[in-house]
Amino acid sequence: MAHHPLFPDLVVNGQAVPQALVAAETQHHPAPKGKPGIAWRKAANAMAIRTLLLQEADRRGIIADPAQLAPGRHETDDEARIRALLEAAVTVTRPSEDEIRAEWARDPDRFRAPPLWEVSHILCACDPRDDAASAAAQARALDLTRQALADPAGFARLAATASDCGSKSAGGALGQLGPGDTVPEFESALRALAERQITPEPVLTRHGWHVIRMDGLARGRVLPYETVRDRLADAIEKLAWARAARQFVAQLVDEARINGADLGPA
């Protein structure tokens, strides 16, 4: 690729980074349509940091020992060396009991047992991949939504006559549900509903279009400190590690000579 002001050559501490590597990295950096320069700059910044980390790993004599990420999938040598470098260079202490308790006390309401939802629905079944069938089922679900909102007390009767789900025999009642009991799109709709509320728009899942009513809602109780302590300690430590890793990278950037990237103060 010829040198171009939008796509400058990237040079890190005298080491030129091939333009093909920066170009390959651009796929991970979204940019507005017709603005390739923005994606290029983001990619150049990412490649500059990656190059700096690998140079520092070389300086410290770190050798790759790729870990298995999943069955049949291992880290690349570069990923393994960067991980080993950060493990060696970035250390944080485990938070103290006082720090953990102070973080918990900031808002204990964040830590609750799972909610319980008492739910009814009307299903207009279709295969969402079939555009014509999905459009027809959506139109029917929109009409049923209008009827349900006009007469909320008649929801069970409407479900009994119109629903394509076996729950129609119980007036659409699905009983008590908790997180993870339904498909993600259905659960997402439940989380947005108040008690006695009906979804204002039909909800699409792999089963078809749903009109959903929240019959009852029980928020999970606030969990005691002892129950959440270890999870909270892990989260505080992870946050501190991420902050320290950013500082380590910022220090490498400060000490480096970089052309073709725009790494301002971190």
Rank of each mutant, 00 (worst) to 15 (best):
N45H: 08
P36H: 08
D58A: 01
P18F: 07
A16W: 03
A67N: 13
L69K: 12
K33Y: 14
A31C: 08
I63F: 08
I63S: 09
T51C: 07
Q68F: 08
A46S: 15
W40Y: 15
L54S: 01
P71C: 04
R50I: 00
L21N: 14
R81F: 10
R59N: 09
Q55K: 05
A43K: 03
R60G: 00
D58Q: 05
D78Y: 08
D77A: 14
P66F: 09
A67W: 13
E75R: 02
P36V: 04
A20V: 13
Q15D: 09
L85I: 07
M47P: 02
R59I: 01
L54T: 02
A23P: 05
P18M: 05
L69W: 06
M47A: 10
A23R: 14
E56S: 02
I82H: 06
E25G: 10
Q68K: 13
A84E: 06
E79K: 00
H74W: 15
A64E: 06
G72A: 11
L53P: 00
A23M: 14
V12D: 02
M47W: 06
Q68A: 12
A23N: 12
A57E: 03
R41T: 12
W40D: 04
L85S: 07
H74Y: 15
A31E: 10
G72F: 12
A67V: 12
Q15P: 00
A24V: 10
L21A: 14
H28T: 13
G72M: 09
D65Q: 15
A48D: 09
G14H: 04
P36F: 06
I63L: 09
R41S: 11
I82Q: 13
A57M: 03
G14Q: 03
A84H: 03
I63V: 12
A16C: 00
R60I: 00
G34I: 11
D78T: 03
D58S: 01
Q15L: 13
R50H: 10
I49V: 15
Q55A: 04
P18Y: 09
A46N: 13
G14M: 03
P32G: 06
R60E: 03
P36W: 05
D77Q: 13
D58L: 02
A43L: 06
A39V: 08
R59W: 04
H28W: 14
Q15F: 11
R50Y: 02
L54W: 04
A39C: 11
A80I: 05
L52E: 02
H74T: 13
A67G: 06
R41C: 04
R50K: 09
M47I: 11
A31G: 12
A46V: 12
M47Y: 03
A48K: 04
R60M: 02
P32S: 05
L85P: 03
K33I: 13
T51K: 07
I82T: 10
L21M: 14
T26K: 11
T76G: 07
I49E: 15
D77F: 12
G37W: 12
K35M: 13
E79L: 02
T76S: 15
A84C: 01
V17T: 10
I49L: 13
Q68E: 15
A44P: 07
A16L: 05
A44D: 07
K35Y: 13
G61Q: 02
H29L: 07
E75I: 01
V22S: 05
G14Y: 04
E56A: 05
V17Q: 08
D65N: 14
L69V: 11
G37N: 10
A44L: 08
A64N: 07
